[in-house]
Write a protein that binds this DNA or RNA. Sequence first.
DNA 1: TATTGTTATACTCTATAACTATA
DNA 2: TATAGTTATAGAGTATAACAATA
Lengths: 163, 163
Amino acid sequence: MAGETSPGADRDAAVSASREVIELLEVLWNKGRDMASPAPVSSSQLRVLYVLDRDRPINLRTLGEVLGAAPSSVSRMCDRLDALGFVERSPSSSSRRELELRLSARGVSYLADLRTRREAALLGVISAMPSAERAALAAGLSSFRLAVEGAASEGSDDAAETA
Amino acid sequence: MAGETSPGADRDAAVSASREVIELLEVLWNKGRDMASPAPVSSSQLRVLYVLDRDRPINLRTLGEVLGAAPSSVSRMCDRLDALGFVERSPSSSSRRELELRLSARGVSYLADLRTRREAALLGVISAMPSAERAALAAGLSSFRLAVEGAASEGSDDAAETA
DNA sequence: TATTGTTATACTCTATAACTATA
DNA sequence: TATAGTTATAGAGTATAACAATA
C-alpha cells in the first residue's frame, strides 16, 4: 500500500521491536511482581494461576504440559498454593486417579487485584504515548495475540516451543 | 482526530491488550527459553545477561538494584555464570572493594544465538499478521518502549516498581 | 502394561544475617 | 562508620528416578 522498500522490512521492524520490548519487560515486569498486597506469590506460582484462570478445571499432568514443567514440580507447587489457599485440589469425577485443580475464591481475587495494580502501572506508561501510537499499539497487539493463539492451536507446538 | 467516543477508551484498550499479551508471553516465552543450543540458562540467569549486555561494566550491588535482587543472590548467580564462562568478574580500577562485571565472549555469543532463535519464533507469528496490523504493532511498540524508558529515567522508580 | 499423581534426592534461586575488606 | 562483596543457613522451584494407585 504505502511505498514498501523491501518485502521483509516491515516484518523485521515488528520482530525487532517485539523482541526488544519483551526483553525490557522480562526485567521490569518481574520486578513489580512481589509488591502484591494480599501475599507475594513467586513468578512460577503466578504462571500456575494464569493457566488455572484460563483452563479450569485442569488435571496436574496437563497443567505441567502447558507450563513445560515436570509433574513432580507441579505437584510440589500445588502443595504450596494449596497451603496459601489459592488453589483447590479435588478428586476428579471421571477418573479416580486424576485431580481437578482450580483457583479458590481467594486465588481469583488475588489475581484480580494483581491485574488491577499492573494495569495501573501500564496506564502510567501508555498515558505518556501520543494518541495515534496508542491506537496503533492496541490494534497491533490484538492482532498479535490472535496470531499467537492461532499458532498455538494449529501445530501441537506453539511459537515459543519452536524457539 | 478520528471520532473518539469517550476520552479514556483508547487508553483502556491499549492497557488491556498490553496486559493480556504480557501474561500470554509470560507463560509461552519462558517455555521456549531452555531449548537453547550451547547451554541452557535459567530465567534468572538470563535476566542477568540482559542487564550486563546493556550496562557493561556494572558492579554487583548496582546489578542487584536493577534486577530487584539481594546482593547475596547476585553473588551466587555470578558464581554459576562465571563457572559457565558467560560472565567475567574483575577488580574495579576505581575502587578496590568493587567488582566490574561483564559478559564474556561466550556470553555475548550465547545471547546473540538465543535472540536469533527467538526472533525466528516471533517471525513465525508476525508473518501470520495482516500487513497493516504488523506496521501498527511496530509503531506502537517503538512508542511504548520510549515511554517505558522515559518513565524509568524520570522518577528513580520505574513503571514496574509502581505495580 | 500404561497412566496419574506423589515422594526421595539433588541442584539452582532467593533472602536475611553474619562476616571480611576497603573508604 | 559506612559500603562492596562473600559466606552461612534456610526455604522455594526444578528435574530425574522410584513409588503407589488406578485404568
